[in-house]
């Protein structure tokens, strides 16, 4: 069988719903796309810990402090799970971190923005994680089985993040006018990034990750599911979504909304977001500061060998 025939047979198996394991043969393009996709996901988990990290010391109660710390620990844990998958696919961790801090690889748009108040912490945990769970839920059926199985565990843990975030928002909304305003302002800051979160509405037939079964649902479908799940929940508690065009079109069976500026999304994820540089410098600094730990551990292993 020629390489092209093997690729064709593989493609056919994927289309029939078959799954691929780490040790199975796979086409180079499939491997490269998996690495890029999962690495971006892993980077997002790692970078996603940073905006919330600033709020551990400012959490309004011991319980909130414990829960925020636990959430951050989960996000870094998710990065660990996902980096293992990328390593198994052939990219060493040192190279992954090097590419991240040099800005050669990406992470999700929402982690390129600063946080200004406790309101941001609630809205991020509830709605950013909510948007993420919609994508990650669909990824449980990825053609790459180790990724799909990892998503099951991640989604289970994310359930706590969502509920805790919703609790933060509800508690504030039940409080003083000032507390309510904190949530409304945070929602206004995060709505545009949230609408960009699932990516531009690429036609499904042009989305290569979809063709390989790495993803299982088109971007626009994920955004529609996000809106169907959360718009009512947001409005029910008296918060106003800052998009006058947002409405459910029952004739078309879909949400209509103000089209996000996709050039802006591209600019943000390529390192030109309001907090991109600060976050990457922080990550670079952490990497430098912890270099001695890696040297110490790898040094011991070298001695033992």
């Amino acid at each position: 069988m020629t390489y092209e025939e093997r690729v064709e047979a593989f493609r056919k198996r994927i289309q029939e719903g078959h799954k691929v394991e780490a040790t199975d043969w796979m086409p180079d393009e499939y491997r490269a796309r998996l690495i890029k996709f999962i690495e971006m996901h892993a980077n997002s988990e790692l970078m996603g810990a940073l905006p919330e990290r600033d709020w551990i010391l400012r959490a309004p109660s011991l319980h909130r402090k414990l829960a925020v710390t636990a959430k951050i620990q989960d996000e870094v844990g998710h990065a660990q799970l996902l980096y293992r998958l990328v390593e198994d696919l052939g990219k060493p961790r040192e190279k992954i971190f090097e590419d991240l801090v040099q800005g050669r690889t990406k992470f999700h748009n929402v982690f390129h923005y600063p946080t200004y108040s406790w309101g941001d912490v609630g809205i991020i945990a509830w709605l950013v994680d909510g948007a993420a769970v919609i994508s990650q839920g669909a990824l449980q059926r990825s053609s790459y089985a180790p990724y799909g199985r990892t998503m099951r565990r991640i989604c289970w843990e994310e359930a706590f993040h969502l509920k805790h975030g919703e609790d933060i928002v509800l508690t504030a909304v039940m409080g003083t006018e000032k507390q309510k305003r904190l949530m409304q302002e945070a929602l206004e800051r995060w709505w545009e990034p949230l609408m960009m979160f699932h990516g531009p509405p690429t036609p499904p037939e042009k989305d290569k990750d979809l063709a390989w079964g790495i993803k299982t649902k088109p971007n626009e479908q994920l955004r529609q599911e996000f809106l169907s799940t959360y718009v009512r929940k947001i409005q029910e508690i008296g918060l106003k979504i800052p998009d006058p065009k947002l409405k459910y079109d029952s004739d078309k069976g879909r949400w209509t909304y103000t089209e996000p500026d996709w050039d802006k999304l591209y600019a943000v994820v390529t390192g030109n977001g309001p907090a991109s540089k600060e976050r990457l410098s922080f990550r670079r600094l952490s990497l430098e500061e912890t270099a001695w730990v890696r040297r110490a551990i790898l040094g011991e292993r070298a001695q033992a060998a």
């Binding site: 829960a67 636990a70 706590f160 969502l162 509920k163 919703e166 609790d167 509800l170 029910e236």
Partner: peptide
């Protein structure tokens, strides 16, 4: 505090 079920209180708050 790490478990989703600990936040069932959201139903009552809503």
């Amino acid at each position: 505090y790490r478990m989703g079920v600990a936040y069932r209180v959201t139903v009552e708050k809503r």
